[in-house]
C-alpha cells in the first residue's frame, strides 16, 4: 500500500495495461477525497498537537472472489485511488508473478529516487577542518 500510495497514476496505468485491464470488482466505497488531520508531537517526542490537515483520497473495492482492496493516499487523485484499491486486492489474491514483479520494480524506483535525494544532500555535508592559528 505504501508503494501504491507513492506511485503516479500513469505508473499504475502501465501495470493495469499489462494485466489487460482492471478485473471485475464491486466498489464498496467510491473514491472520495477528504482530509486527514496531521498530528505531530511537541519537541518531536512530547505532547501531541494538530499541525494542520492534508488532503487524502480513499477507495475500497471487492473482487469477484471476495478479496477486499483498500487505497489511502495523500492528494486528491480519485482515479488513482480506484486503480490502487483494485491492485491492492489483486496483490492479495493473485499469484500473477508479473504483477508482483511490477510492484517490486515500482518500489525499487521509489527507493532509488529517495537515495538520489540523500546523495545530493550528502554532497552538502560540511567537512570541517581546523585552522592553525599563531606559531609554535
Amino acid at each position: 500500500m505504501a508503494v501504491l500510495a507513492r506511485a503516479r497514476k500513469t505508473e499504475l496505468d502501465e501495470i493495469v495495461a499489462r494485466l489487460g485491464g482492471l478485473p471485475d470488482h464491486v466498489v464498496l466505497k467510491p473514491a472520495e477525497t477528504g482530509t486527514v488531520m496531521v498530528e505531530a508531537r511537541a519537541g518531536g517526542t512530547g505532547r501531541r498537537f494538530n499541525m494542520g490537515e492534508a488532503t487524502m483520497t480513499r477507495c475500497v473495492v471487492r473482487l469477484a472472489d471476495g478479496t477486499m482492496g483498500f487505497a489511502y493516499a495523500l492528494g486528491t487523485d480519485r482515479p488513482k485511488a480506484l486503480v490502487s484499491a483494485v491492485l491492492d486486492a489483486l496483490l492479495q489474491s493473485s499469484s500473477d508473478a508479473g504483477l508482483h514483479d511490477d510492484i517490486a520494480a515500482l518500489a525499487r524506483a521509489q527507493t532509488e529516487a529517495r537515495q538520489l535525494a540523500l546523495r545530493k544532500a550528502a554532497a552538502t555535508k560540511v567537512d570541517f577542518f581546523t585552522l592553525v592559528r599563531g606559531h609554535d
Binding site: V36, V38, A40, G44
Partner: peptide, 14 residues
C-alpha cells in the same frame, strides 16, 4: 467542503 476522514499518527521526525 471536504470531509475529515481521520487523524494521522503523530509524525515521527526522527
Amino acid at each position: 467542503t471536504l470531509p475529515r476522514l481521520g487523524s494521522s499518527q503523530p509524525l515521527d521526525t526522527a
